[in-house]
Computed example of a mutant assay.
Amino acid sequence: MLDISVIIPVYNAGRFLEKAVQSAVHFEEVKEIILVEDKSTDNSLEICKKLADGNSKIKLFQHPDQENHGAGATRNLGIEKATGSFITFLDADDYYLPNRFNAEKEIFEDPKIDGVFSAIGVEYLTEKGKQEYLTKFKDSPLTTVNYPAEGEEVFRGLLSLTPKTFGTFFHLNALTVRKSAIDKHNLRFNVNLRVHQDSDFNIKLAYHCYLKSGIIDQPVAIRGIHDDNRITKIVQYSPQYNQRQYIYWKSLYDWASSQNIPEEYKKRVYLSYKSFDLSQKKGLIKYLNIIVEGLKNPDILKTKYRFNYYR
């Protein structure tokens, strides 16, 4: 039977935390739930203590200095504290569904599989949050990939290098991975990214580890949409969006440059990184840089971010 550590980073999630924990604690496969509290300003710490006192499966940790370090560092601490053979993640304002580990029970019988990912759904908790989400993501009932895949096809799909559209994202709430695989490749979240730590982690994970899709046509977890979801507040191709995308792709570019990976993959990451680098420039300098880069790398004009240059 699987023995799973569920890592829940906690920051100002007092309204939702108990539901998240209760959705995970009852699974026979769940060995422990690791709450990592990140200096919340609401009553989250008190709720964490109450939950941990009430169930031996639930363990509470804070950063050594008890300060706020962000989601990336908080998940990293959870990985360090995990004792299960498998690791999953759950955001404190989300929750698992009863089928959460159905695919894992069968797929992980194959020892070559390092990780399994499935689909998640959405629940609108506030009207404002709903409108912000629909403005950015339209009416997407599932966050999922478009077809079953495994191995290198997953990595290629996340970089948009497959002949048909794979989908550029799967959510941490629906990822289960062997802890030994994470430790073998020293995979951790980039603490310098305030957003997109999950996408950055997933792409690196997909390169180093053998991932396989699980249940992709129905949700295994639910993401709560409310007023405080940070990712929905960023307007696409706004200066803030461009800056955060630049930092994200710069992280991947630095990683790709340090790895002995095929040139095709390095180039794909570079083009995305460079497109957002160019978007930071202004005026005549911006257009001169676009011309120079276009002459050196004509493929940059084919990236899905190409129209970003002119905004």
Rank of each mutant, 00 (worst) to 15 (best):
D228M: 09
L187Q: 07
D200S: 09
S213E: 11
D139M: 00
L142Q: 01
P298V: 04
K250F: 08
H208D: 08
N202Y: 01
N190E: 13
I290P: 00
K31W: 05
S44I: 04
T74Y: 06
L278E: 09
G70F: 02
G167L: 08
I222T: 06
Y207T: 07
F61W: 12
D42M: 05
K212G: 03
L90T: 05
Y124P: 08
D94Y: 08
Y246S: 02
S279N: 08
I4F: 10
Y287W: 15
L159T: 08
L159M: 07
T303D: 00
L51A: 07
Q236S: 06
S23Q: 07
E293V: 15
P111T: 11
K267R: 15
L2R: 14
G167W: 03
I222F: 00
Y237C: 04
F86Q: 03
D114A: 08
A13M: 07
F117Q: 01
T135M: 05
Y147Q: 10
N146L: 04
Q245E: 12
Y310L: 09
G283T: 06
L77K: 14
N43Y: 01
Y147N: 05
E28K: 12
L211D: 09
A149K: 10
V122N: 11
Q218I: 00
Y270Q: 04
F155P: 10
K31E: 15
Y11H: 13
K302T: 11
K204P: 12
N202R: 13
Q62W: 04
R15L: 11
D217M: 04
P219L: 03
D42H: 09
Q218P: 00
D254Y: 06
R268V: 05
D114N: 15
Y248F: 15
K19D: 09
G72N: 08
N68V: 02
I234L: 02
K304T: 07
E104F: 03
E18S: 11
T232A: 03
K130C: 04
V191C: 05
Y253G: 00
K50F: 04
L172Q: 13
C209G: 01
L288A: 11
V235A: 10
